[in-house]
Write a protein that binds this DNA or RNA. Structure first.
Lengths: 197, 197
DNA sequence: TTTTATAATTGACCGCGGTCATTTTTGATT
DNA sequence: AATCAAAAATGACCGCGGTCAATTATAAAA
């Protein structure tokens, strides 16, 4: 008979996340070192890896939480009225992911998965985002403001592809180019959602 | 006055690449360890890092070469006659990249760059692929077989986005799903290139 | 040939993520 | 209280990518 996780353990886990979030706040995602986290949390290194599969597993929870918060904001507002407005609604997401390559890499690594395990907040976020997009697109389709010849799921996943594309280009440019992701996304969305005969 | 790289140095570099390619052949990209390469090449570790920025830099050359070979094959054949045939022409690329996550990650990291440095074969390959796609799409446009309302460059880069998308999903599935990237790509291409009013 | 500046190479060393046999804590059982 | 098994935590240890001051090889200058 296996026992449920005890209170003390959950506290430790919470403290680890708390400390990690604080360090990210101070030094950015790329500055997060496992040794710092465990030191400030007052636990041994092995403990961290008993709570999270690896460093990415820890980051996934942090980033997943943030994505969830962004999605709360997106869901709260009114659905977009047209293809152009869609870009604006996605801008917060692009801004967040675009600020640090670590976020982007991690989201890419997990964002295609459909099976959601307890800790996989990232995966859950991905599913939620595609679901939200699909719902929006359905509305736009019935309103006749975008193409109707494709299922909304396909269109939604296509938008995901474009999101990642413009972000990938953004990071490869190393910010020489001053075209922010949100701006770069527009032509793709316009062409992708344009009504077809 | 700086001197040109000497013969001996070039030989060392060539030997490193040779050995690395052999090890990849035997154990796959993920099995490549820097220590093995330098051991079999008969040089010190530091030497490798004077020839390549880091491990990825070495892999980039290997993978870039392979991509170039694939592109030779693509350019040799006749251009595709329609949107559907495009998928088939891209299949070799998808098969190659889809075989190992390391390849995918590395190509993603570099594939957005436009500035090509001497060693950046990956970048050169990316540019060449987009150029080739653009040329094909131009032909298809004048033949009236795909949409004409968007510049071929945009359509080409959109295809890149879809390529990466289906590959990303492919790797996240960990091969539970039996839909190969080439198959998954089709609906996106059809919808993306479909003539619009 | 000797000297000299620079190119090329070396390998001890470091940082950091991750492991695992061992120890400590905990909560149920007698 | 004493005993015991499972859970949790520990920290010495490892693998491996990457660095850099020191050393050696090389080609031009004197």
């Amino acid at each position: 008979m296996t026992r449920a996780p005890q209170k003390r353990r959950l506290e430790t886990r919470a403290r680890l996340l708390e400390v990690a979030a604080a360090i990210v706040q101070e030094q950015g995602y790329s500055g997060l070192r496992v040794e710092d986290v465990v030191a400030r949390a007052g636990v041994a290194k092995g403990t961290l890896f008993s709570h999270f599969k690896d460093k990415d597993g820890l980051l996934a929870v942090l980033i997943g939480d943030e994505v969830m918060r962004l999605l709360d904001g997106m869901e709260a507002g009114a659905p977009p009225q047209g293809a152009a407005e869609l870009t604006a609604r996605l801008a917060p997401h692009l801004d967040y992911v675009g600020q640090d390559r670590v976020i982007f890499d991690l989201l890419l690594r997990y964002s295609g998965t459909t099976a959601a395990e307890p800790d996989e907040v990232v995966t859950a976020g991905f599913i939620r985002q595609v679901t939200l997009l699909t719902r929006w697109l359905e509305v736009l389709q019935t309103a006749g403001r975008i193409r109707q010849d494709q299922p909304p799921e396909l269109l939604a996943e296509g938008i995901q592809a474009f999101l990642n594309h413009v972000l990938g280009v953004w990071f490869c440019m190393e910010h020489d180019d001053e075209t922010p992701p949100a701006k770069a996304l527009e032509p793709y969305l316009k062409a992708w959602l344009k009504p077809a005969r």
